[in-house]
Simulated scan of single mutants.
Amino acid sequence: MSNPERWIVGITGASGAIYGVRLVQSLLAAGHFVHLLISDAGWRVLKEELDWQVTRRQEAIKEAFGDAAERIQYHPIQDIGASIASGSFRVKGMIIMPCSMGTLSAIAHGTSDNLMARAADVMIKEGRPLVLVPRETPMHAIHLENMLKLSRLGVKIVPAMPAFYYRPQTLDDIVNFLVGKVLDSLDIDHQLFTRWGEPNEHSVESTDEYDTNRPN
C-alpha cells in the first residue's frame, strides 16, 4: 500500500486483550499504520492473559509485532497533547477492542479525561468511524443505555459475540471471526474467516434440520 491508512486502536482493561492484539496484527498485515493506545488496566490484562512483559512497554510492543512495529505509534494514555487528540490530525477511524464499560461510559458522557476517551470524542465530533467492542456480561441498564446513546450518535457497537455457523475448531478461529467482523464494519478487506455461503469443508446441504436463514 503506497499510502497506508492511519487507524487508532485502543485496548482497555476488559478481558479479551487477544482481540485487540489480533486486530493490530491484521491492520499491519494489510499495510496500514496504527496509533496504539493501551490503558493502564489494559496493560495489566495483557500481562495476565498474554504474558506480556509490561514493565518495558515499547519493548513489549516490538516483541509482539516484530518488524511491523515500525508502523505503530504508541501513545501513553495520559498524553492528551498527542497528535490523535486533535481533530486536525487525519486518521481513518478508531476501534477500541476490547472496550471496558468504564471507557464506554466515559465516551458516552464526553468526559475526555485521558487520551483514549479524547481520541474517541474526536472521532464522534469529526464524523469519523468509531467502533467499540464491549466485552462484559451480564449487562445492566446503565451499560445498555450508554451503548444506545452512542449508537444514536453513529458509533458502531460490535459486542464480542462469536458465531458458530462456520464451525470454529480453535480459539484462534473465534478470535479471527470477531476481528473480521470489526474489519467488515470498516470495509477493510481480510481473509480471517469463511463467510456464510462460501464453500468450505464444513458446509452442509440445507435440510429440514438446518435453518436456511442467513446468520449474522
Score class of each variant (00 low, 15 high):
Ser206Trp: 14
Ala17Ile: 11
Lys181Gln: 14
Arg152Trp: 00
Pro76Phe: 04
Ala120Gly: 03
His143Gln: 10
Pro76Glu: 10
Ala41Cys: 03
Lys92Trp: 00
Ala30Gln: 14
Asp113Asn: 14
Gly127Ile: 05
Arg56Pro: 03
Glu70Pro: 00
Gly93Ile: 00
Leu178Pro: 06
Ser26Glu: 08
Thr170Lys: 04
Ile84Glu: 01
Ser26Pro: 06
Ile61Asp: 10
Met116Ser: 05
Arg44Pro: 00
Ile107Glu: 09
Lys47His: 14
Glu59Thr: 12
Gly102Tyr: 04
Gln53Asp: 12
Ile188Thr: 07
Val24Gly: 12
Glu209Asp: 14
Glu136Ser: 07
Asp173Val: 04
Asn114Lys: 03
Phe177Ile: 05
Leu115Thr: 08
Ser2His: 12
Leu192Arg: 06
Asn200Thr: 14
Pro168Asp: 10
Leu46Ser: 09
Ala117Phe: 05
Leu178His: 12
Arg44Leu: 02
Tyr165Arg: 10
Val21Tyr: 06
Pro134Arg: 13
Glu126Ala: 02
Gly87Phe: 10
Met101Asp: 02
Gly102Arg: 06
Ala29Trp: 06
Glu145Lys: 08
Glu48Ala: 09
Val179His: 08
Ile96Glu: 06
Arg44Ala: 03
Ala41Lys: 14
Ile124Gly: 00
Glu205Cys: 09
Val175Asp: 06
Phe164Val: 03
Thr170Leu: 04
His32Ile: 05
Val122Glu: 00
Val122Phe: 02
Trp7Met: 07
